[in-house]
Write a protein that binds this DNA or RNA. Structure first.
Length: 878
RNA sequence: AGGCAUGUAGCUCAGUGGGAGAGCACCGUCCUGACACGGCGGGGGUCGGCGGUUCAAGUCCGCCCAUGCCUACCA
């Protein structure tokens, strides 16, 4: 009589394969800058073009998809711009490694051939990650996909460089920089990772005084740098060294002499001997000393950190070989004053892992002061808000103490710096179009700067370069500024801060209203996932095994604001069962709809109206959570509503009507369809595929002619009725069913055992009206009002506004009921005592809000009534 | 050294001054016409510690302990 053609278990993979291409081909992801609605735009944090999808991407992009799908359904003019990053160092590194495996070196190939090779690799692997992203179900507008090195974005980069150069915000300067001797490029401060508790050594040695007859002992963690020493510094007030200041020491390994200087800034007289060796060209502090005392800056290491010609007989040694050799040589001279183990911190290249060498070098810099200031103000005055807010402190701390940004890199893959040097007059020409002559002297003998820009230089422009800037496009005027940037805390400095000052400077306003910062995905033990540790969870494998929606729902559950995630893949499997449960609920409706006649003006039953009221409440809670970006709460509310209200109660209630053939059947059908249509839309941002599958199978009447759920309006609480009285009327039914089920469990009775129930008290009338539900859900075979004396051997269940009396003859020993009542009395007494104690507190009654006090009085009344009923029942059977 | 965060059930975590919650795990029970990938019922907590504010503190304040992260030029 009823049936369904739907599969018995939900086919997640089938839905994914059918709907994603359908959505994309029909242009459902595409934004229209000329279209209706308030703008809501997001730009994707562009993944490395040759990278592959990991859990961090999955979390990041799932969150963006939750938001964009929600807003799109809610009537906004929504667009999500995808794209990829050329990832300068990372990509060049990968290709160089490929070359090395073939015995090739990029220097032998030359720049042009090498770049061809990188482009080929980009073409080969560049679509991998964007296709992996599609497996996540993300609704990016792929027709607007961009790449940081495509024509338009390269033009934006060049435009910015020229503009900043002309206004003096980009300059070329000679500074102490971080040098990666393995990658052989300069790095910004951010690309240096500090490793604490590195086990090093503190080596002390003596510099002999040039005049003879004395020495001064200094200590260092880097013996090889003594080859570049050009001073010894002491504190000006240190009595031990007052007489030595101004005297010369002799370099025992090189034919040089240099002075002892007094420097209060560098030297702490309490530390060590109070005398410090000074290497102005290989230490950031000593660099300052060199400037202050006008010392020579002797660079003694080459770009591979090998000792150069200034190192005398140590020339050609690598810095660590030189370290040993210098110590040995000094020991032979009797100048070694001992070595002690020393814990220190070292800076390593983020990419190569090499210990970074401080070097003096001429590089390009962005002058940060004037750019940082308005970017700080914008966050201070709330134009851009961080969520959670505490990240603003991190942002402020860095921005207020910011140093100029070194933007040149000695790489080939990237945006080549548009600067030309003149052989004849040394002038620099920076121009939008490639120049043929020096802008100063007109000489045709000009050479282009070989270096490229830091990858983050182009990323900084992403929120407007992807919208067509510097052209004045419709996209730019509609979608800039973007609504929200979703990213991890690890790139607040690298990227978020730089987008902020870039947007403000070039566009005249912040690039995004909100910055949503999520945590890191770690393994079950809280360890960072890494290939070397072998604890990486592959999101694609998880999706393959359990389905995209289960995976996304799990991400939503985990996405508590600001906390790292300890990923347990098992949860995805658990959630796939929840997905299937929603499917089963839909199947229940579907297999009972063959005679459904939509549009009939059926009168809804109490349970129908009840679930509609409940649905409205759930919609309100889900919306609130979504608006607050509390995705874990979104997941919780969806689960609580679908399982706890719709499945556990409404579907069970509705069976009485559905299995009959009266008009209530039509009303239940109508309600099932309506609620399922709401559920499909409600869950869509998190579970796009299941929701579409349900939507496609629902009767047309429920869909308002909308062909895809992703284009349907997100449910509003106001679509549903409010009815507190109805909720109050159904509550005792649920309470009674619960109490009867528990009684059976406590007494060891079979759950489906038919029982008789006598109802007593003011609630009787209400319960008598729900006889069917009590029969169906609690096995009540006979329900009637208690008249006169209650029979002997009964169990008593207090419920709000009355009690249920269940004759136990032939069911269970009366002792069991006596024990049960005694236990309940004990519990309830404690409850009553606690409440009485609270209410007898005069301060509480006098000072707490009346509403709160009344609330507790009602609870006390209820508990007391319950206690009295238990006591009376016990007395009755004793 | 400074800063930020975290500490709640066996595990992972919600919790917005008003009687401590969820999922998983655990125990008991039921294959009832959506779902055993399930239903029903249950046990389990000194909310890291000490003090303070308040009628009332997991929640606000202070100190301490533990853990994690970020920033920093300590020879």
């Amino acid at each position: 009589m009823s049936g369904s053609n739907l599969p018995r278990t939900y086919d997640a993979k089938g839905a994914e394969e059918r709907f994603y291409p359908w959505w994309e081909e029909n242009g459902f992801f595409q934004g229209d800058p000329e279209g209706e609605g308030e703008p809501y735009s997001i730009v994707i944090p562009p993944p490395n073009v040759t990278g592959s999808l990991h859990m961090g991407h999955a979390l990041n992009n799932a969150i963006q998809d939750f938001l964009i799908r929600y807003k799109r359904m809610d009537g906004y003019n929504a667009v999500w711009i995808p794209g990829t990053d050329h990832a300068g160092i990372a990509t060049q590194w990968v290709v160089e490694r490929q070359l090395r495996e073939q015995g090739l070196d990029r220097r032998d190939m030359g720049r042009e051939a090498f770049l061809e090779r990188v482009w080929a690799w980009k073409e080969e692997s560049g679509s991998v990650i964007t296709h992996q992203l599609r497996s996540l179900g993300v609704s990016c507008d792929w027709s607007r996909e961009r790449f940081t090195m495509d024509e338009g974005l390269s033009a934006a980069v060049r435009h910015v460089f020229v503009k900043l150069y002309e206004s003096g915000l980009i300059y070329r300067g000679t500074r102490m920089i971080n040098w990666d001797p393995v990658g052989q490029t300069v790095l910004s401060d951010l690309e240096v990772e500090h490793e604490e508790n590195y086990q090093g050594e503190m080596w002390s040695f003596a510099y002999p005084l040039a005049e003879g007859g004395g020495e001064i002992v200094v200590a260092t963690t880097r013996p090889e740098t003594m080859l570049g020493d050009t001073a010894v510094a002491v504190h000006p007030d240190d009595p031990r060294y007052v007489d030595l200041v101004g005297k010369m020491v002799r370099h025992p390994l090189l034919d040089r002499e240099f002075p002892i200087v007094a420097d209060a800034e560098l030297v702490d007289p309490e530390f060590g001997t109070g005398a410090v060796k000074v290497t102005p060209a290989h230490d950031p502090n000593d660099f300052g000393v060199g400037k202050r005392h006008d010392l020579p800056f002797l660079t003694v290491l080459d770009d591979q950190a090998r000792v150069n010609e200034l190192g005398g007989r140590f020339e050609g040694l690598d810095r660590y070989e030189a370290r040993t050799a210098v110590k040995e040589a000094m020991a032979e001279l009797g100048l070694d004053r001992g070595t002690e183990p020393h814990l220190m911190s070292v800076g390593r290249s983020q990419r190569s892992g090499a210990i970074v060498e401080p070097m003096i070098s001429t590089q390009w810099f962005v002058k940060m002061g004037p750019l940082a200031e308005p970017a700080i103000e914008a966050v201070e005055n709330g134009e851009t808000k961080f969520i959670p807010e505490r990240w603003e402190n991190t942002y402020f701390a860095w921005m207020r103490d910011i140093r100029d940004w070194c933007i040149s890199r000695q790489l080939w893959w990237g945006h080549q710096i548009p600067a030309w040097y003149c052989d004849d007059c040394d002038a620099v020409t920076v121009a939008m179009e490639d120049p043929t002559a020096c802008s100063a002297c007109g000489s045709a003998s000009i050479r282009r700067d070989e270096d490229v820009l830091d990858t983050w230089f182009s990323s900084a422009l992403w929120p407007f370069s992807t919208l067509g800037w510097p052209s004045n496009t419709p996209e730019l005027s509609k979608w800039y500024p973007t609504a929200v940037l979703v990213t991890g805390f690890d790139i607040i400095f690298f990227w978020v801060a730089r987008m902020l000052f870039s947007g403000i400077h070039h566009m005249g306003g912040v690039p995004f209203a909100d910055v949503f910062i999520h945590g890191l995905v770690r393994d079950t033990n809280g360890e960072k996932m890494s290939k070397t540790k072998g604890n990486v969870v592959d999101p694609l494998k998880t999706i393959e095994a359990h389905g995209c929606d289960a995976f996304r729902f799990t991400l939503a559950q985990y996405a508590t604001q600001g906390r790292d995630i300890l990923w347990d893949d098992n949860r995805v499997e658990v959630n796939s069962r929840f997905i299937n449960k929603i499917w089963q609920a839909f199947r229940f409706a579907d297999m009972n709809l063959e005679d459904f006649q939509p549009g009939n003006d059926v009168e809804l039953g109490a349970y129908d109206r009840w679930i509609l009221v409940r649905t409205g409440e759930a919609v309100r809670r889900v919306r609130e959570a979504m608006d607050g970006h509390r995705f874990n709460e979104v997941a919780t509310e969806i689960h609580a509503f679908v399982v706890g209200e719709f499945c556990d109660w409404y579907i069970e209630f509705s069976k009485q009507a559905i299995y009959g053939d009266g008009p209530e059947r039509g009303a239940a059908q109508q309600t099932l369809v309506e609620v399922l249509a709401a559920i499909a839309r409600l869950i869509h941002p998190v579970m796009p595929f299941l929701s579409e599958e349900i939507w496609q199978q629902l009767p047309d009447s429920a869909k308002g002619g909308v062909e895809s759920v992703m284009m349907a309006p997100y449910p509003k609480a106001s679509d549903f009725p409010e009815d507190p009285e109805l909720l109050a009327a159904v509550a005792p039914v649920q309470e009674s069913i619960g109490a009867l089920r528990k009684l059976k469990a406590d007494m060891g009775l079979a759950p489906r055992l038919g029982i008789s129930v006598l109802v007593d008290g003011e609630v009787s009338t209400a319960l008598m009206a729900h006889e069917g539900a009590l029969a169906h859900l609690a096995g009540v075979e006979r329900l009637e009002p208690l008249r006169g004396e209650e029979p002997a051997n009964c169990a008593t269940l207090p419920v709000s506004g009355g009690r249920l009396v269940i004759p136990l003859d032939g069911l269970v020993d009366i002792d069991a009921e006596r024990a049960r009542l005694t236990s309940e009395i004990e519990k309830t007494s404690k409850d009553v005592n606690d409440l009485e104690k609270r209410l007898s507190n005069e301060g509480f009654v006098a000072r707490a809000p009346a509403q709160v006090v009344d609330g507790f009085r009602v609870k006390l009344a209820g508990a007391t009534e319950k206690l009295d009923k238990y006591k009376a029942a016990l007395k009755e059977i004793s």
